[in-house]
Design a protein around this nucleic acid. Structure first.
Length: 423
RNA sequence: GGAGAGAUGGCAGAGCGGUUUAAUGCGUCGGUCUUGAAAACCGAAGAGGUGCAAGCCUCCGGGGGUUCGAAUCCCUCUCUCUCCGCCA
């Protein structure tokens, strides 16, 4: 969330940022509640000072045996106590109202983020490789996965529902190979610590990273135990250090493989053929905790680490920057990496690399020490490194052969038992 | 799931209704001494809120209650440990 002090001092900046994001929030109402809250606190604290002094006096009178005087004083202090209780109730109510507004206000876009009206305005920053030429008719991945029995969509729908594919045979092996390949790359080449977190989180963690309260409809929920299956490893990894002051003199870098669960409410029928949009998918995620002054530079490093995964696989991709209108709720700045898939003839988003500034750190209370040893909010970043299904789509479609087989990229072969082709 | 015991500052560990502004030890940082270091001695040091500031308020796992006053008493939740049960 945003710093209430910042909002108080820069309401115009906040309102303009909301406008650029096509978002709305009652900033003036928030500031009025903030004013009332501080007035109530000031009054309550003054009374508490009185009460503390009076209580000490009563203690003294009791010791000296002046019972009558003590009783008279007690009566007086009781009245002060009643007023304090009323004021503190007021503060609590105001806190709730303030939270209700401020938790729904998205992060401010960084100054470098291009202002835009829709995803049409996302600039392409760079690309790697080029579109492969084929001397035969390329097939979309759903034909290939069926012919080679790599994915069984029908049976997944039978046992769970649509959007829950079953990977089989070499298809299942490929999932495992990709996970191992990516985690090995990040841990050995990029300095990451591998983590295997829980795949469900509580409401507090979900609020810390910004999924709650606004996006509860996008998540699955286990009512009996009040737990949410994670939509991304960002949630458990980032919240790992919630309520802590950690040493971030060097960036703390965590990488994890987890399945991800998304209801994709409102997305029915969109982009959902084959492996393009699923309710459950696998992903390797990278999360960084850095000192504030390092986050902009670390963001560039992080996107490079995600790109490395694709470069070694020999896949054609491009990096775009999200404009203000397309930026995620908690992000201050975000790059998307898109892979070219010749079968479906589309660019597929496989990684979203975001700098959250101190937005998540403030919600989750994650801090580090500044140069003077004082506690300060740190910055969080994360990036997919990368999401599997669309990566699988790109691999299968780009490496398909005229005879119906799929060549396995060389870096994956050690993870596939030396296999060179699927099919 | 059942029974019991716990949760206090970076760590260990006192305190169990009013000089606790949370003792003491270890660790950390600064200083004295020293060629340098160690030892010894002296000193400093938490987080959040509020206020222009001085300062004040809050925080002893979370929440609620009793009281003039709660780390301390009561209720409740969470977590940890021990034993039992069940079980990949």
């Amino acid at each position: 969330m945003l710093d209430i002090k910042f909002i108080r001092e820069n309401p115009a900046i906040v309102k303009n940022a909301l406008k650029n994001r096509n978002a709305e929030a009652d900033v003036d109402g928030l500031l009025e509640l903030d004013r009332l809250r501080r007035a109530a606190i000031t009054e309550s604290e003054g009374l508490k000072t009185e009460r503390n002094t009076a209580s000490k006096t009563i203690g003294g009178l009791m010791k000296e045996g002046k019972k009558d005087e003590a009783e008279a004083a007690k009566e007086e202090v009781r009245l002060i106590g009643d007023r304090i209780a009323a004021l503190d109730d007021q503060v609590r109510e105001l806190d709730e109202k303030i939270s209700h507004i401020i938790l729904y206000i998205p992060n401010l876009p960084a100054e470098t983020v291009p202002v835009g009206a829709s995803e049409e305005d996302n600039p392409v920053l760079r690309s790697f490789g080029e579109k492969k030429e084929f001397d035969f008719e390329v097939k979309p991945h759903w034909d290939i996965t069926e012919e080679l029995k790599l994915v069984d969509f029908e049976r997944g729908a039978k046992i769970t529902g649509s959007g829950f594919p079953v990977y089989t045979g070499q298809g299942a092996r490929l999932q495992r190979a990709l996970i191992s390949y990516m985690l090995d790359l990040h841990t050995t080449e990029h300095g990451y610590t591998e983590v295997e977190p829980p795949f469900v989180c509580n409401a507090s963690a979900m609020t810390g990273t910004g999924q709650l309260p606004k996006f509860s409809e996008d998540m699955y929920y286990i009512d009996t135990d009040e737990l949410y299956p994670i939509p991304t490893a960002e949630v458990p990894l980032t919240n790992l250090y919630g309520d802590e002051i950690i040493d971030a003199d060097e960036p703390v870098k965590l990488a994890a493989y987890t399945p991800c669960f998304r209801r994709e409410a409102g997305a029915a029928g969109r982009d959902n053929r084959g492996l393009l949009r699923l309710h459950q998918f696998d992903k390797v995620e990278m999360v960084n905790f850095v000192k504030p002054e390092q986050s902009a530079a670390q963001h560039e490093i992080l996107v490079g680490e995600a790109e490395k995964v694709l470069q070694l696989l020999g896949l054609h991709y491009r990096v775009i920057e999200l404009c203000t209108a397309d930026l995620g709720f908690s992000a201050a700045k975000c790059y998307d990496i898109e892979l070219w898939a010749p079968g479906v003839e589309r660019w597929l988003e496989v990684s979203s690399v975001s700098n959250f500034g101190d937005y998540q750190a403030r919600r989750a209370r994650i801090r580090c020490r500044d140069e003077n040893g004082k506690a300060q909010l740190l910055h969080t970043l994360n990036g997919s490194g990368v999401a599997l299904p669309r990566l699988v789509v790109a691999i299968i479609e780009n490496y398909q052969n005229a005879d119906g087989t799929v060549t396995i990229p060389e870096v994956l072969r050690p993870y596939m038992g030396g296999l060179e082709k699927m099919g």
